[in-house]
Write a protein that binds this DNA or RNA. Sequence first.
DNA 1: CATAGTATCGTAAACGTTTACGGAAGCCAA
DNA 2: TTGGCTTCCGTAAACGTTTACGATACTATG
Lengths: 342, 342
Amino acid sequence: MTGIRELARHLDISIGTVSRALNGKPDVNEETRRRVLEAAEKLGYVANQSGRALRKGSTGVIGFMMQTGREITGQGDTFFMSVFDGVQTVLARHRLDLVALLCSSEEDPQAYLKRVVARGFADGIILSATRRHDERFEFLAKSNIPFIALGRSLTDVGQPWFDLDFEGMADTAIDRLVSHGHRRIAVTRPHDDMNLGYVFVDRCRQALARRGLALDETQVFRSTPNEAGGYQIARDLIACRERPTAIVLVNEAIAIGLYRGLNEAGVKPGRDIAVIGRQSPHSQFLSPRLTCFSLALRELGISLAESLLATMPTYSNHYPDAAVRRLWPMELVPGESDTFDL
Amino acid sequence: MTGIRELARHLDISIGTVSRALNGKPDVNEETRRRVLEAAEKLGYVANQSGRALRKGSTGVIGFMMQTGREITGQGDTFFMSVFDGVQTVLARHRLDLVALLCSSEEDPQAYLKRVVARGFADGIILSATRRHDERFEFLAKSNIPFIALGRSLTDVGQPWFDLDFEGMADTAIDRLVSHGHRRIAVTRPHDDMNLGYVFVDRCRQALARRGLALDETQVFRSTPNEAGGYQIARDLIACRERPTAIVLVNEAIAIGLYRGLNEAGVKPGRDIAVIGRQSPHSQFLSPRLTCFSLALRELGISLAESLLATMPTYSNHYPDAAVRRLWPMELVPGESDTFDL
DNA sequence: CATAGTATCGTAAACGTTTACGGAAGCCAA
DNA sequence: TTGGCTTCCGTAAACGTTTACGATACTATG
C-alpha cells in the first residue's frame, strides 16, 4: 500500500528494479517484471505522484484553464465539456492526466495562471476564453511551458492556437441571407475584449461589401453572451427605426433569449425576421428550429490535444516550428428560422 | 526562480528560515519575514508543489469529481459551474486549490477515482453525479480520505452529503397543482440509477395520497435528462389515452424539449397542460415562462465546501461525528406555465 | 553576576520516487 | 583460460520542500 519500498521488500528485490519494472524500462527480466506488475496489482500499489513528480521534474498533468460563469466564457458549457472529453481521450493514451483549472469569477485569470505555473502544477496548459490582448501568452512563452490556446489573440508570441472558423461562418451566413433577398442584416458580437467579435464582424462587413452591401454599424449588437443578452438584443432590434430583416448570432446561448424577446413583440423568427445562430444543445428544440452552425466538438478536442503534444519534446519528435494554427470548420445546419424569401 | 535554496542564498540566510518565513511560522523575526516575502515576490519564487507535497504528505488540492457529458450529469453544466465557484471561494481562504476531475465518458468513474486517490492527488474529494448504489463511497471511506457527496445515495458509510430538497419540491409542486384543480398529474424521473428519481417519485406519490389522489404509475416518465429526453416525454404524453393535465419535471434541461414537443402537437403549456420544472439559465426565456424551482447554487457550493472542511482535522476542530447531511432548499419561482385553473 | 527564559536561526533528516552507475553472473569466441 | 559482451540487478544520490532539534544571543529577574 504505502511506498515502493514495501512492495520491493515483499518481492524481495530492490526498489530500483521494481521502479524499472513498473516503468517499462528495458533492463529488467520479463519474468521479474511480471511478478512485480502482479504484486503491484494485488497490493493496490500506485506510485506516489508527488515523489515521482519531484524526481522527474514533470507532473504528467495537463491543465485546461477555463473561467467559471458562462457570462465570461460565452459558450454553453457543454461546449467545453465536449472539447474536454476529446482532449482527455488523447492525453490518456500518453498516460497524461487532464484536469480542469476553473478560474473563479473573483480571481484574476492572469494571477491564477501564474500561481499554477510557478507551482509546477502542470506540464502543459490549454488556454481558453482568450482575449484580444491577453498577457497570458507572453507569460507562458517566457515560462517556457508548452501551451496551446483555444481562441486566437492579437498577442502573438508564436504560440499555436485553434479557433473556430468565424470567417467561414460569416461568409456562409451572409451569402445565404443575401441570396434569400435580405439587404439589412444585423450581426452580434461579444461585449468585451474577445477577438471573435472583431474577426466576425469584420468578415461580415467584407462579405456584405462583396455583394455591394454595407454593414450598418448601428446594427452591430453587442451583448453578454447569455440568454439575457439575447433578450436585450431583441429589444434593441425592435427599437430600430429601420429594423433589419435578418440577424446573425455569433454566440450559442443567446438565441433563446432572442426568441423570447421577439415573441413578446409579436415578431416571429423565420417569418418576420431571419435568424442564424450557433448550434447548442437546445437549438434544435426551439420553435422554429434554429438555423445554425455546428461543429465537431469532441474532434476539436482531439485535434487540439494532438497539437499540444506535438509541441512537447517528450511526447513527439518535436519541431520547434511546429506551432499549428488551425481554423476549425463549422457546418450550416438548416432549420426553419431563416427560411423565407424577401 | 528555481528553488528555495537560491532564494536563501540570495538573502544570505538558511533555507529553514526562509521556509518558516514563507509559511507564517511564529519563530521568525518579523523583519526577516518581511525581507523574505519581499525577495520572494521580486524573484517570483513560489514553492514547488511536488516537493512540498512530498514532505508534508498532503497536496493542498481538493478534487471535484464530475462526469463529462450532460447526458450523464443530468444537470445543465452551469449548475456545476456555479457550485464550483462557491466551493472555490471557500477553499481559497484556506489556501486550498480546487481542480475539477472530469471523468471521461469512456472511463469507469470508479477506476478513475481509484487512480486519483492512489496517486495521492488530492487531500479531499467532492463527489457528484452519485448513484443510488455507488461503490465509490465504500472505497473512499476505506481509503480514509475526506470526502463529501453532492447527491445522496443508499450506500451509507456514514459519509456527509448534500442534496437538493426534492421532497420539498414534490410537496410544493403537488400541493400547488392540486389546489389549482389538477387531478391527473404526471412526473418525470431520470433513466438510470440516480437516487433523486426514487426519492422524488415516492414523495410525489405520498403528497398525492395525502390529497386522496393516486399517482398513475404509467405516467411516471423516465427519460434522459437532456433536451431530447424532454421531447420524448412530450410525445409520450400526447400518446396517453388519459392525458394528464399537469406534469412536474425533475430535471433542468428537459423543459425546452418538452415545450417543443408539446407545441408540435398543438398542446400549449400553461393553457392545455400545466408544467412545473427546475430553474435553468433559460427557463425564464421560454414562452410561456416556466414555473420552476430555483436554488442558490453558489451558496450551495459554499456550504458544501465548509462541510467538507469540517470533516478535515487540519482545517477544523474536527468532530468525527460531524458528518453533515443537508437537504438544500428550493424555492418556487412562479411563471406562466402552470397558471390556469381546471 | 548567574540563571532561566525567550526569540531567532541553522542543521540535517525525511518524504517516495527515478536513474546513473557499477557489479555479478553467464555466455561466447579466441 | 581469458577477455569482452550481454543481461540483469543493487546501491545510492538526487529532486525541493518542511520541520524537529539544537544552538546561539539576548532579556529579564533575582
